[in-house]
Design a protein around this nucleic acid. Structure first.
Length: 272
DNA sequence: AACCGACTTAGTGGGGAGTT
DNA sequence: AACTCCCCACTAAGTCGGTT
């Protein structure tokens, strides 16, 4: 709450138009109050709070839904980085994050072995505490936390799958008739009004189009859909040849398994 | 044992989800 | 599809835990 009130008071005094994207940090509560007192952090947080979507209630909502999962402690270099970065930023006010890390990395090589071992000891303690905290977290997980953990795992898998598919060039889903209409019309109206209003206008226009006028876009969409079907079959065949069954759609795998009429095979596929 | 992936920090640019 | 804004990869070095 100290963070909230501090930011609110600054936001009321200052008018910011731009925003800082790293608002996630706030939700992680990793920005300490002391850090906020430094001008740099305060300004950054005020950027976040001054933004149109991150109102105080939203941030509070995020923090209140935080689970209690212990965080993995940083390694010794990260601990060192945290220690020296403020000074580096003071000495090199225009340095990018990458440059700050590079400077710290260079300094790290010359750090006194005694200091390194001191940090290592600190780190060891933190890790022991982390293990204890983690154990009691796992032992005392609430049904909500279990659900959250499951969701995390699923999200992670989904993300991995998505990235793999993208990297392997999976064809994109075809655009709907409405999307085809938007693609056709939007450029002509883009500068007329705010985006949401243009979209509303085009939505209304779309709804008022006659059957025959809509037909043109339905045809376009159908063509794309046909092309997609061919592309995806080709792509999935290619993936099978590469042995990448993990990226192929479940429906295709199921169909193949059914085609083989092998119940064992189908079971295996379903288990994927 | 050796290797690999995931994770730790913060700022930032870019990707992508959500919106119509 | 275009746009906004949220979210994530990237960057550094080191470490853990799982797999080969």
């Amino acid at each position: 709450m100290a963070v909230a009130s501090l930011c609110k008071s600054f936001c009321s005094k200052l008018q910011f138009t731009s925003r800082v994207s790293s608002c996630i940090r706030l939700r992680d509560s990793s920005l300490k109050t002391e850090q906020l007192h430094s001008q740099r952090s305060t300004l950054q947080v005020c950027h976040i709070w001054a933004g149109p979507t991150y109102t105080s209630s939203k941030v509070l909502e995020h923090t209140s839904t935080q689970d209690n999962k212990p965080k993995h402690p940083p390694n010794v270099f990260i601990m060192y980085l945290q220690k020296v970065q403020e000074q580096i930023m003071k000495d090199h006010p225009n340095a990018s994050r990458k440059e700050v890390i590079a400077i710290a990395s260079k300094k790290w090589k010359d750090v006194d072995p005694e200091e390194k071992s001191h940090l290592a000891m600190q780190r060891k303690d933190l890790f022991e505490k982390y293990k204890d905290d983690m154990k009691s977290y796992v032992d005392n997980m609430t049904p909500e936390e279990m659900k959250l953990e499951d969701r995390r795992k699923q999200q992670k898998l989904a993300k991995k799958l998505k990235t793999a598919r993208r990297e392997l060039g999976m064809p994109k889903m075809p655009a709907s008739a409405f999307c085809c209409y938007m693609a056709d019309q939007y450029p002509q109206h883009a500068r007329e009004d705010a985006v949401t209003r243009v979209f509303k206008k085009l939505r209304d226009q779309w709804n008022n189009l006659s059957e025959s006028e809509q037909e043109k876009y339905k045809k376009q969409s159908a063509q794309r859909s046909e092309a997609y079907k061919e592309e995806i079959v080709r792509w999935e065949k290619e993936m099978m040849e590469m042995g990448r069954f993990d990226v192929i759609r479940k429906s295709t795998l199921l169909r193949l398994a059914m085609g083989n009429k092998s119940k064992k095979n189908q079971k295996e596929v379903e288990e994927l």
